[in-house]
Amino acid sequence: MIAFIIRRLLQSVLVMLAVALVAFGLFRFIGDPINNMVGQEATMIEREQLREQLGLNDPIFIQYFRFVGNAARGEFGISYRMARPVADIIAERLPATLELAIISGTAALVFGIGLGVYTALRRDGWLSHFIMSSSLIGVSLPTFLIGILLIYLFSVYLQILPAFGRGEVVQLGWWSTGLLTSSGLKSLIMPAITLGLYQLTLIMRLVRAEMLEVLRTDYIKFARARGLSNRAIHFSHALKNTLLPVITIAGLQIGSIVAFAIITETVFQWPGVGLLFITAIQFVDIPIMSAYLVLISLIFVVINLVVDLLYFAVDPRLRVKRSGKGH
């Protein structure tokens, strides 16, 4: 078990190093960073001085290790456009994105699993058919379109929810939260639905398919033959086995909720890191772009690690057999 965790941690570090390499490469591929920093009238000597000062004349790998070292401490340099440390800018924006992602991710999981189980157990009910057909909307409509439709319906037509922004926020230390004010909560509803709908329908369809599969297995038949109650069979025996493969997909989906909040944040002008990233692209603000890249990869790596550990907790077959022989 511990060996496994160490191995996985090492793998994670390798992945992060590779990502850091790409993020580091951004600076070089998008042109000479000096050009972005100095004015047009700077002389060659001034440029050379700055180059030396920033360590850009050092061998590539030394520069890379310096980048990694800084990144590990959360330092990604200074935003070209806003002339402030990137770390500060991201720290300001991160709570908005995380709140949105956590709320919509939780909703997607809870409703996805709930509806998935329901539609699997009442396979032929009209409500199940209705849920299954409407879930096609969630899978097939693009996120921005759902957002725009919601804005049209609730903000323009019914005028009950704000069309953009985060509403009022309360500052809790460095964390700014919109969950404590009514305007903040109202503002959260539509972005959360927009962001989580795809994940919800995906998880629901996955849970349903897995559950139907599990209900056909011999051990469920045997559980019935033993006279166990339907509740015990469905929610203890079947659900636990259903969730095993769902954990992987759900984990990745939760990761992508954070990563791809970009579109939702753009549609709703949500002041999170996704919106920050889009603006950074428009202005070729490379330090922010590379920091975002590293941050998102970190979130994915952490989620994958958690998924692997969850597998251990849920599936006894993966645990090391301490008792020795199987006979």
């Binding site: 051990y219 033959a225 033993r226 006279g227 636990k240 086995n241 599936d315």
Partner: peptide, 29 residues
Amino acid sequence: PHAQMRKIRGRKIAMIFQDPLTSLNPLFT
């Protein structure tokens, strides 16, 4: 009805299936 039949299953009539490898739920002791 199902509820009454359930009380017979296991209590009066039990069943053993063909494949012991798949008859037991892998996630429970």
